[in-house]
Amino acid sequence: MRFMMLMIPKGYEKAKPGTSPDAKAVAAMMKYNESLQKAGILLALDGLHPPSMGARVSFPGGKAKVTDGPFPEAKEVLGGYWMIQVKSKEEAIEWARRCPGSENETIEIRQVQEMADFPPDVQKEAKGFAEMQSKSAKSRK
């Protein structure tokens, strides 16, 4: 089973453009990342720039509307994620518990959908999804 561990740092919704975590926190987090890698369960991870550098596209009345960040109405935003491969939700929770998180941080654990989770009609419509993941993955390099 694959899980995303989504890091939600409180306050990041208001962070200034270019904000980066302090070196000490990064050092602690790197140690944690290494422990995931050494356990053979880490598949991917990324950190995200603050929303003040991003934008939101919403669809009021079905029409695209762009709002530049920051987003005053957002109470929680993502700071990054880990993708892990484990045997159970309990194991994912156990790994999340080990994260050197600080007071303002929350990790949300969500299982990654797999094709086999869907009924046949959805599977049919989603054909080619994995291939798209590959292309986006390649272009990211």
């Binding site: 598949l43 054909k127 994995a130 291939e131 993955a137 390649k138």
Partner: peptide, 13 residues
Amino acid sequence: QDRSRWDYLLIRR
């Protein structure tokens, strides 16, 4: 095999 069903994350790794 339907290659669109291959797991490209694993291929990349």
